[in-house]
Simulated assay, not measured.
Amino acid sequence: MSKSKLLFHLSDLHFGLEDNEALDWVSREIAERTPDAVAITGDLTMRARHHEFAAAEKWIHSLPVPVTVEPGNHDLPNYYLPSRYLNPLGRFEAFREVVERRIELPGLALVPLNSNVPAQPRLNWSKGWISTSALAECLMQLDALPDGMRALVTVHHPLRETGTRGTALTHNGTKALRELARRNVLGVLSGHVHDPFDIMEDVGNGSVRMIGAGTLSQRIRSTPPSFNELRWDGKQLDVRVRTLGDVATSDMMIDDVPEDAMPPREPGEPVAPVNKVPRTDPPKH
Rank of each mutant, 00 (worst) to 15 (best):
M1F: 11
S2A: 10
K3A: 14
H9G: 03
H14Y: 12
D19R: 04
N20Y: 14
A22G: 06
R28H: 13
R28P: 03
D36N: 06
A37Q: 04
T41N: 12
L44F: 07
A48N: 00
V65L: 00
T68F: 04
E70N: 13
N73A: 07
H74T: 08
D75G: 00
L76M: 06
Y80Q: 10
P82I: 12
Y85W: 15
N87H: 11
G90D: 14
E93P: 06
R96F: 13
V98N: 02
I103F: 05
P106W: 05
G107W: 10
L108F: 00
V111F: 07
V111R: 10
G128H: 10
G128P: 07
L139R: 11
Q141W: 04
L145D: 08
P146R: 01
P146N: 01
G148Y: 06
R150E: 13
A151K: 01
V153N: 12
G166D: 06
G166L: 01
A168S: 15
T170G: 03
R183K: 09
N184R: 15
L186Q: 11
L186A: 12
V188H: 07
L189V: 08
H192S: 06
H194W: 08
H194C: 09
V208W: 12
M210T: 12
A213D: 03
S217D: 02
Q218K: 15
R219L: 15
I220H: 04
W232L: 05
G234S: 05
G234I: 11
G234H: 00
D238R: 14
T243P: 06
D246V: 10
S250C: 06
D251C: 13
D251G: 13
M252Y: 05
I254S: 08
I254K: 03
D256G: 02
D256V: 04
E259R: 13
V271S: 15
P273W: 07
N275D: 14
V277Q: 07
V277Y: 12
V277E: 11
P278V: 06
T280P: 04
P283Q: 03
K284C: 12
